[in-house]
Amino acid sequence: MLSRVADSLYWMSRYAERAENIARILDVNLQLMLDLPKLGPAEQKTLWEPVLRSTGDHVDFFEYHKEASSDNVIEFLTLNPKNPNSILNCLTASRENARHVREQISLEMWEEINRIYLWIKSQTLKKIVRQGPYEFFSQVKNASHLFQGITDGTMTHGEDWDFIQVGKYLERADMTTRILDANDEIFVSKPAVTQTAGTLHWSAILRSCSSHDSYRKFYVAQVEPDKVVEFLILNEFFPRSIRFCAQSLNDALRRISGCKEEHFTNLAEKLAGRLVSELNYSALEDIKTVGMHTYMDDLQIKLNGIGEAIFQAYLFSPPLPLPESEPKPEPAPGKAQGQSQKQGKATAAA
């Protein structure tokens, strides 16, 4: 498979997943606010700032706005054409990458990503408000689920499909670390946090990861911060836990190269395998010992490292030297060194 094709499949998948995650985070936060007493600007700000940190947009956002309110955060993260992480731009980027590899993906996949693109191009903030943001967010989430389902159901599960999985799980793991990191203060028990308000928050975080029902089923218990952390990081079977994502990512990388477990043929496999082992042999106490914030930063550094290693191993081909006898041409076209498409997020660890 062409490196360029693998690159486009990977980013097509990442951007679709990102759009879904942003829709879910916004949706949950809006619903959370409905459960709280009427909020002044200061309270609104405390509720929206973690959202902006989760998506990695807090720096960019405050260049345009003084205060974070429901209206301006939603505008910024849904249809704002200047924000590379707005849902509009994520879906556009996903579709643009799909267009690049249209002959590689199934017709059904193309039509679905093209449909959601045409749909979001036709949206306005007014429309979103009128029909209720819930409707808008559920359209985005459903489109992503449909796209992933169509991908699994209509595409050959070969190397190209595996690159789609790599993109999807890397993005998902990344987003889960960001959500936990952005909300780390509410895991530190403060006397001011009442039990009810705390439960609301922790539940909101679970719902941001689509994991509320799974959590209940797994623990059959109250929502407690420790268990929330344990579930979202270390659960073996929940498809959005970091451990599950790391495992799936590692599996996909091994299918691509044909390298068996416990071995590695490139840096990406080495780092992914190491991360899986670490998560497999970790418990909640280990996280608490280092502290949530440090632990999440460390995870993000590792995930970024895997992303960069994948890029070096598969997606990027260094320009080859030209035959000496020929006159020297213009500088070779193509990608600059480093990951080819901007991640569009400030790395928390940076």
């Binding site: 062409l2 490196s3 360029r4 094709v5 002959e103 081909s317 080859l320 035959p323 070779a332 076209p333 193509g334 990608k335």
Partner: peptide
């Protein structure tokens, strides 16, 4: 395969 110039090398 559909290729762009950058995908080919001599």
């Amino acid at each position: 395969q559909i290729v762009e110039g950058q995908d080919l090398v001599v």
